[in-house]
Design a protein around this nucleic acid. Structure first.
Lengths: 203, 203, 203, 203
DNA sequence: CATGAATGAGCATTCATTCAT
DNA sequence: TATGAATGAATGCTCATTCAT
């Protein structure tokens, strides 16, 4: 993952194609979008898709990766100045929920479509997701080491609880197009989370 | 060429086709399933699908309706002996969650796929869903009349809260194949619900 | 051809099927009519068509034959009392034009569709047409023998001129749904015909 | 894989497909011709038909338009040097009959099949036919203005009489594959026409 | 980098016809 | 005589992908 420097000297046609897909994904299912449609919207030759991307799915993963990459880069950047694992997790949760809310199209694909694709675990998309999940894991481990977080729960379970809860809350909202009150939701989630996992909780 | 004794009412091939679709739906998207596949799995001629069902979607709706019909019939039967709107709602919630848990394949389709189909609102599936929702509405109205339920909330909002909550809780579990603790979930949901809507709540 | 006695003890289902086809032919092309449609309109089982007729085309030919048979039978009957070949031909022409006008659906099929079918020359339809043409031929030969008609034109050419002219005049009217003034047309045709072929023409 | 020098403007496969259809139309009904057959005769992939033409009917209309376009262009060019509406009409009639005779396959389709197609009036074929009919109309109006043609008959009726007569005479010949004596037919038609519509007719 | 041409495999659906009873 | 069930072979059409240039 080339996080910091990016998005610069990409051939314009590549971007045109990616933009075309993004545009179309707002309207319909990935499977219902045809390469002909993509190329028409992009204003380029259909075969050009295959110069820039392995195949149709590769294009989707590239588009997703671009989004994800930016999100993860920003998240990591934002977490830089924050002190303490708990504060970092709070930020992490809040940012993720905001991302789900802001980019509903991609969030939906991420949560629903992409996981069923064969070859998902070899995709760049997965790599970034993994990077993101590992990053959270490091925060948790940091918190355990520093004594902020209980050491009697398997860290991966904590991570799964965090990521699972976010999904759990956001998915129906994404599917049924409900509004998400990001701030309140993040607060709620964190409250539940921290009361459970903070060591020597005196509440 | 079956054994002499066969079901007179419905041709066995119809069931074979329906079963084939059910089987395939466990593995993949409805749109990704082809009629050729269905007929192959069913061991019948592809054209036979169209003797028994209007089209591919008609087959899906037939299969869904069958399931739904049985569920709704049972639900109504089970509610017969129960006294009081609150008790009925508790049973209603519990049964619905159990149904989602027991028939995950169909629940997933019901919650995700079918609503996007053109013509859904003319389908038999929708008719049964509507019947089911209307049934809940009657219970709520009965509760309001009997004084069990507050009369200062629009009944349809109460209904939407009930049905929405159930979906909200079950959908991620269905999608990510989590286990559902039906009893606990039903209790939780009802607790939240009743404390809010029971008249003269003294808590 | 069993001209005189007919139409009596046919099984009702056979007639139902034939009637269904007749009905449908008024609305659309023979090729656009399906056996499913025929059986639906007839209110009988689709397979029953194949009990009564060899195939779909056989059904058409049967229906056509029935019509033709009746027409030819009536024509022959009507010609019985008429004296002289010229008078007979006049009647012949008049009756044919009237038939074309009265049964436009079948006339169209007869003039346009049926001739292109493989196996037409083995069909009963063709047998009746042949009988009809031969009948005209006999009148012509009778006229030549009796001296009414010139003997220096090949009789078959005379016949072709008569039948061809009638078709020539009626076909566009049938295709474009023009009205046919049968009496005037018959008069015109005969005038042209007789002035040309009557022996010792003194006009 | 053709020889080095090839037609730049239109891909050869497009012409191959068009030629294949033309060939097949000599033998059978448009509706009886399948896309599989067309591609087989053309020696190209079936899907290629849909790269070059909207659909099967689009292919037919393209082929028809090509023919019609050439005919109408030539007709208009030939009429350029001719003085007087009557002379122009004579040429118009003669050319149309010749066209019917020369391109019997397309004439047949034009007179029989194409008019029944849904969407015919939106087709390019119809546009050209309309242009052709409008062109005749202008000649008639020119003739009325110049005093060559009676002004007491609705011009559109004159036009319909001209076009209708031509069809009326040519259709049976096309259908039954009779020879057409173009010169004699054109003379006859014009004689009838002009004696009726020329002003100050002294016959 | 770009493209016009081409294609194999597949799609849902339809149809005339056959078969077992 | 009648029929419900079944089917092989098409049908027009679409799609993601490849290739030659």
């Amino acid at each position: 993952m080339n996080v910091p420097l990016k998005n610069k000297s990409l051939p314009p046609s590549r971007q045109k194609i990616a933009n075309a897909l993004k545009l179309l994904l707002k309207e319909k299912d990935f499977n219902s979008i045809t390469t002909a449609e993509i190329s028409r919207v992009a204003g380029v030759n259909e075969a050009l898709i295959y110069r820039h991307f392995k195949d149709k799915r590769g294009l989707l993963h590239a588009v997703l990766s671009e989004y994800l990459d930016e999100f993860v880069s920003n998240l990591i950047f934002d977490l830089k100045g924050i002190k303490g694992a708990i504060n970092k997790i709070r930020k992490f949760v809040w940012a993720t929920i905001h991302y789900y809310d802001a980019d509903r199209v991609f969030s939906k694909i991420l949560l629903l479509e992409v996981r069923n694709f064969p070859g998902y675990f070899e995709s760049e998309t997965y790599q970034i997701i993994k990077y993101y999940a590992d990053f959270l894991m490091k925060i948790i481990q940091e918190g355990i080491k520093s004594g902020e977080i209980r050491d009697d729960i398997v860290p991966s379970n904590i991570r799964q609880f965090i990521l699972g809860s976010i999904e759990h809350y956001c998915l129906p909202a994404l599917i049924y197009n409900h509004k998400i009150d990001c701030d309140a939701l993040a607060d709620n989630l964190c409250e539940i989370l921290f009361v459970g996992i903070i060591k020597n909780n005196t509440f």
